[in-house]
């Protein structure tokens, strides 16, 4: 008794197909899930090249000159928005910052109405942060084909630029992924960052990925979905780890019967100098920020020699420049293809 599937493939909203053009170039950056290793490596390599830009006297490259990039933040985030803004400016783009949460949707305007209005301003790229999983993909599906969409975090689904900047930081310190043991600790259930990291670590061929949390914070069938080992004991989970990624714990998890108290959470899953001895001596400790000191980790670790948390922030800029310039590059290819040779001289 096999069930025939009636859904025509063309009717499937397939993120994989949506974010690449026919030649496999990046059109949108919505999720890491489904992208291949070559493309992820291209993003990392390109970001490597942009690292130097920050050290130049003139901190700008003209890759996105004449383009308009709009930051559409339906959820507040000063830090992420600022790095995207800076990345766009270093690529010589014009930047629009729209704090949508406070304006249009509060007045009852639908998301599509907001989108149409911005399209009318001939924006070339949307950087989208939204509280709903799938929002960036929805915008990519409905925006005019000439517009690229970068997901800056959608619900619990994905935060692909954060995932890639974490990979960039790991590669910087460890050279590659094939021999690594990476442990991710904390609220995996609600974390879009973790989902993007897990997809990237898997695609880049990481030897072993572990997730560590109480069962209330581990999503259903995580081992199967992400190809990871699940631990409920921090010491066992970080034993001999090369990389430890601590996730942010939202305060409201205490109210939803996920955890009894911050105190018990820190006691069991908080990273301290003493516990760090379980890991490899050259382990690096990462955190997407902002840190709750004394909840996810103590200050000694956060500010200690193994912490690369501030490097993650600087790397974020280079990775975001890489992704934005790649998407704009794909747009330019499409424009060139649409313009017949010699048309400019007519």
């Amino acid at each position: 008794m096999s069930a025939a599937t009636f859904i025509p493939p063309a009717a499937r909203a397939d993120a994989r197909r949506l974010q690449l053009d026919a030649e496999g170039n990046l059109r949108h950056f919505l999720t890491i899930d489904g992208l291949d290793r070559a493309l992820l490596t291209e993003i990392l390599d390109r970001a490597e090249g942009f690292l130097g830009v920050a050290r130049q006297a003139v901190k700008k490259v003209p890759l996105c000159r004449g383009k308009i990039i709009a930051n559409l933040f339906f959820e507040n985030s000063t830090r992420t928005r600022t790095t995207f803004e800076l990345a766009a400016k270093r690529l010589s783009a014009d930047v629009l910052n729209l704090n949508i949460g406070a304006s249009a949707t509060a007045k009852g305007e639908t998301l599509l109405d907001t989108l149409r209005n911005l399209e009318a301003m001939h924006v070339d790229m949307f950087v989208v942060r939204h509280a709903d999983s799938g929002a960036a993909q929805f915008i990519a599906e409905h925006a005019a084909p000439r517009i690229s969409v970068i997901n800056a975090g959608d619900g619990r689904h994905a935060h692909p630029t954060q995932g890639m900047l974490d990979m960039f930081t790991i590669r910087q310190h460890k050279g590659g992924f094939a021999d690594l043991t990476v442990a991710i600790v904390g609220d995996l259930l609600h974390s879009r960052v973790a989902r993007s990291q897990l997809a990237a670590l898997h695609t880049l061929g990481t030897r072993e990925v572990r997730i560590i949390a109480p069962r209330t914070l581990i999503p259903a069938r995580a081992a199967e979905v992400f190809g990871v080992r699940v631990f409920h004991d921090l010491d066992a989970g970080i034993a001999d780890a090369d990389v430890i990624i601590m996730l942010r714990l939202q305060r409201e998890r205490m109210d939803g019967a996920f955890l009894p108290s911050e105190h018990e959470y820190f006691h069991l899953f908080g990273l301290t100098e003493r516990r760090l001895f379980m890991a490899k001596p050259d382990v690096i400790v990462m955190h997407p920020g902002p840190i709750n000191r004394g909840v996810e980790m103590d200050s000694q670790v956060a500010d200690g020699a193994r912490s690369v948390i501030l490097e993650q922030v600087s790397n974020g800029l280079a990775v975001r420049m890489a992704v934005m310039s790649m998407c704009i590059g794909t747009q330019n290819l499409a424009l060139a293809a649409a313009t017949p040779p010699g048309a400019g001289h007519a």
Binding site: S133, G134, G155, R156, H157, R195, P219, A220, R221, F226
Partner: peptide, 12 residues
């Protein structure tokens, strides 16, 4: 709540 909720980050 299962494979797809976990992959897509949708509440199950």
């Amino acid at each position: 709540e299962g494979l797809v909720s976990t992959r897509l980050g949708l509440p199950g």
